[in-house]
């Protein structure tokens, strides 16, 4: 089973790569969002950093922070096309595969986002090698990938809620805002007031962008304890996903498909 699933996973990566080659314009759109999103952020944070010394970042650090987090940011928008599959009954094509829905959709989400972000990851890692150092850059890239695994597991949990929610656009948007804010992409979590910063640092979202960005800046050194946090949250989210899958399929059965 594990062999089959890993073969399927790598096949999916290849498939997503072929899709990206067929529609290269989507990569260009993705890059344009990064570029045009980064330009105002650059000037905005440059002026703020120059105007105050109360931020725990230098001007260079804050700009690099946003280069990293914005350049690699992903949310439900990247995988939006899959959220209707339950409502439209297309999920049955996944149910008949010899693997769990969780594993199947995790593979699909991870491969979609990974291929989409790969060019950005390569560019940022290369830039980082010259500015912040090779070690920080490569470690940040590795922890970004850990964060991607965690993020995709969370997305699977939310996807499985569609058995009950039927592709609610408002709630999806809410999740996107939550990720934008709680992951530290919108504002670094250590700039927030103590209470909110502390709360968000205890949630898993900060492991998606904030922690890798801090590693990128060399402000956090990866430890075994940090890796354990990733593993802990991935396991918790995986268990939640499997429970949702079990009850979701039961509920789906009752509706008669």
């Amino acid at each position: 089973m594990a062999m089959y699933q890993s073969k399927y996973f790598f096949k999916l990566l290849e498939f997503q790569w072929e899709r990206t080659k067929a529609y290269p314009i989507r990569l260009i759109i993705s890059l344009s969002w990064v570029i045009f999103g980064f330009i105002p952020q650059f000037f905005f944070w440059y002026i703020i950093a120059q105007s105050t010394n109360t931020l725990p970042y230098t001007t260079k650090e804050i700009i690099l922070y946003f280069l990293f987090s914005m350049g690699l940011f992903y949310n439900l928008n990247q995988i939006n096309q899959y959220f209707n599959t339950i409502a439209r009954g297309e999920v049955v094509t996944s149910v008949i595969k010899p693997m769990s829905l969780t594993a199947n959709y995790f593979s699909i989400f991870f491969s979609t986002i990974f291929i989409n972000k790969l060019p950005n990851l390569i560019i940022i890692t290369i830039i980082g090698c010259f500015i912040v150092g090779i070690t920080s850059s490569i470690l940040a890239a590795i922890f970004f990938l850990f964060g991607l695994i965690l993020g995709c597991t969370f997305f699977v949990c939310f996807f499985l809620l569609m058995f009950w929610m039927r592709n609610n656009w408002g709630v999806k948007w809410g999740i996107d805002i939550l990720i934008l804010f709680a992951s530290g992409t919108w504002i670094p979590l250590d700039i927030l007031p103590k209470f909110w910063g502390g709360l968000l640092l205890n949630l898993p979202f900060q492991l998606m962008f904030y922690t890798p960005a801090k590693i990128f800046l060399g402000q956090i050194t990866p430890t075994f304890w940090l890796i354990l946090q990733y593993v802990f949250w991935i396991i918790i989210l995986y268990i939640i996903a499997r429970i949702l899958e079990y009850y979701g399929l039961k509920y789906y059965e009752q509706l008669g498909g």
Partner: peptide
């Protein structure tokens, strides 16, 4: 023309 739209959209919504 999704590509061009996406580029213009990203510019406007960021600025």
């Amino acid at each position: 023309t999704e590509g061009l739209l996406g580029i213009y959209h990203s510019m406007i919504f960021s600025i």
